[in-house]
């Protein structure tokens, strides 16, 4: 089922991306920020995708710690890798916009700091998996679990500093404040989400095959020994 679904999703994703670009091109430049405002269509969806990756990594980690199933671990690593990838897109696009909108590349604002720290935690997660040696899946699962659990604390403690980032209420209010921005935004979000699912599926399949190959090697060594 998964194998048949994959090319279909890939095709949908390609169409969505082209549609999103056409929609983005059609919206007239925003009055105060001009062309730079269009970063918004890449920036917001990539953070949504990062938080989705973190959620998958967190749930996968808890599932793995509780049951020890290899598929739980594969889901966690896929989520962790995607979180780092999409987080990087968000971290690059954010400062490009901020330089124009705020006049500075970076602000120690609650949302920025939380996102940066969470991203760093999941970079640490991948570092443990890469350099932790045998048995590092469990250590990584603990990092995934703790990294997810610390998010509300980080957000709350940095929130006490003043926030300059546009509030998330910008999003639900978009139909009233700027109705022309809704179609490109929706197209962007959907294309990022479908891309996320496509990459997740590919990564899970890769993990499955790696596990199969490892099993075959072990079986072969047993026979020749």
């Amino acid at each position: 089922m998964m194998r048949k679904l994959f090319p279909v999703l890939l095709a949908i994703n390609a169409v969505l991306f082209v549609a999103a670009l056409i929609f983005i091109n059609r919206v007239p430049p925003e009055s105060s920020m001009g062309l730079v405002q269009k970063i918004f269509y890449f920036h917001v969806p990539s953070w949504i995708a990062m938080y989705l990756g973190i959620a998958i990594c967190g749930v996968g980690s808890i599932w793995y710690l509780a049951t020890g199933r290899p598929q739980a671990d594969r889901a966690a690593v896929a989520g962790g890798e995607l979180a780092v990838l999409f987080g990087l897109v968000g971290l690059v696009t954010g400062p490009l916009w901020a330089r124009k909108a705020w006049g500075v590349w970076w602000q120690w604002d609650a949302r920025l700091t939380t996102a940066l720290l969470l991203w760093l935690t999941f970079v640490a997660y991948l570092t443990v998996r890469k350099y932790g040696g045998p048995g590092s899946e469990k250590l990584a699962a603990a990092v995934g679990l703790f990294g997810t659990a610390v998010a509300p604390f980080v957000y709350f403690s940095v929130n006490i500093w003043r926030t300059v980032h546009p509030l998330t209420t910008v999003m639900p209010e978009l139909p009233n404040s700027a109705p022309e921005m809704v179609p490109p935004m929706l197209a962007s979000i959907f294309s990022f989400l479908v891309l996320f699912v496509v990459l997740l599926m590919a990564r899970l399949e890769l993990g499955r095959r790696q596990a199969d190959v490892d099993e075959l090697y072990l079986a072969y060594e047993d026979r020749t020994a």
Binding site: L117, L120, T121, A124, T127, V128, Y131, G132, G133, G135, S136, L139, V143, F146, G147, V150
Partner: peptide, 16 residues
């Protein structure tokens, strides 16, 4: 149990 424990400890500990 990890060989690179000296550097991994701060890497994991500080963000959390």
């Amino acid at each position: 149990r990890v060989r690179t424990r000296d550097v991994l400890l701060p890497i994991l500990l500080y963000p959390i």
